[in-house]
Each structure stands twice: as C-alpha cells, then as structure tokens.
Amino acid sequence: MITTIVEKELKQLFTAPFAWILLALMQLVLAWVFLGHLDAFLEIQSQLMQITNPPGVTEIVVVPVFAMAAIVLLMVTPLLTMRLIAEERRNHTMVLLVSAPVSITDIVLGKFLGLMIFFVMMITLLAGLSFSLIAGGTLDFGLLMSNILGLLLVVACFVSLGLYISSLTAHPTIAAIGTLGLLLGLWVVDIVASDMDSFARNFSLLKHYDYFNRGIIDSFSIVYFVLFIVTFLILTIRCLDGERLRG
C-alpha cells in the first residue's frame, strides 16, 4: 500500500516542472560552490605539499560543499513539503485517501518516503559531483560516506517537520512559511549553540550535522536525528487521525 502512495507522490512531483527546476537550480548552485572550492584548492595545493599530513581534497572541497548543501536544502524543503497534505486537503482529495482501505500510517509514510526518494536523487547528484574528483586524485571515502549519511538524516528531519506542519493547515503557503520559520529557528539555535557548553547545542540539527560533516559519526547524533524524524511522523499521524474525531 505504501508503494502505491509513494508512486503517486513521485508521479505528481515529476509531472510538474517545479521539481525539475529545483533539481537543476540545486545542481547549479552546488556546482558553483564546488568549482569555487576546487579552484581555491588548486591554488594552495603547492603550499599544502610542504606541511606534514596535509588536508586532502575531500576536506577542502567536498566538506564545504556538503555544509552548503544542508543550508540550501533547509531553504528548499519547505517548498516541497508544503503541498504534501495541505494541498490534498484544499483540493478535497484527502477524502479519497481516507475513504480507501489504507491506514493513516501508510499515507504519512508513503508521503514521507516519496519525498525522501526525491532528495536521495538530489544527494546522488551531489555525490556524483564529489566522485568526479577521482579523475584527478584520491578521495577519502569514509569522510564522503559520513557526509552523505549526515545529509540524508538531516534532510529527513526537515521533511518530517515539514510534513507535520503541512498536516496542520489547508493552505500550502502557510505550511511553507511555518516550516521555513521553524527550520530557521533551528538554525538560530545552531548559532546560539556555537558556545561549546551551551545546552542548546544538543538540540541544534545543524550542529549534529556538523559532526557528520567532519567525519565523526556520533551515536548520540544518530539517535537525535532518528528521534526527531519519528516524533514528527507520529505527530502527523496523530493529527490526521484526530481529524476524524474532531471533524
């Protein structure tokens, strides 16, 4: 049942030009950043040779590109999550899904996974960009994998939050603004969290992502991300279930 919903979500996403434009724009922006860092790396390469144990191309080019990607995705996710449930409600199509022999859990997970597949494509493109560096040297695959995993988890957090906000309203724009607001709020928490001892540090998504970005896979970060995702998915399911009771 979930696959039917996932299929429908992807079909809806890719029949509209929006998803394609977004993929192209993301790729353009990130390729630009990538080339910029590559350029800088080539300039300082000769100086790097002189230090013992110099940072490799992965640290200097790939890591900042992935750090940038998280920020760009933070801006982009609300545009994609806004329509997930709010639009179904506005077009009265939610009734169709609810009346069908499908559980609310299936609907929510289907929508979540559908959008995640889209983001996996986006991240694959980004990984492809990084892999192109193999042509001229070696890559630190461990660091790259840690970055990919971190980006996937952090995007899944953005999507689950966006999905929940989308389930609260029937207006996609309000859902988008609400999600963007909350995600920016989380970003601000990150700035507060730059103080090492700050308690807020534990709650900042980007701070946890930062560990992955530097190649540190901390189990606390993984648990935090997974809890974040599961919490908002459950909240979404509860919200939609409650609708039947409240009317």
């Binding site: 049942m1 039917t4 299929e7 429908k8 079909k11 809806q12 029949t15 509209a16 077009n91 009265h92 199509t93 939610m94 009734v95 169709l96 899904l97 069908a100 022999p101 499908v102």
Partner: peptide
C-alpha cells in the same frame, strides 16, 4: 476528489490500486 494534474486513466488506476 480528483487529482487535477493526472489523466483519467492514471487517476482511476491509482484509485484501483489503493
């Protein structure tokens, strides 16, 4: 409850699968 951006066949097939 219609998905405006689907064709009639696509839509009915989706409902049948649901």
């Amino acid at each position: 409850p219609l998905y405006q951006e689907m064709t009639v066949d696509e839509f009915l097939r989706f409902v049948a699968k649901l």
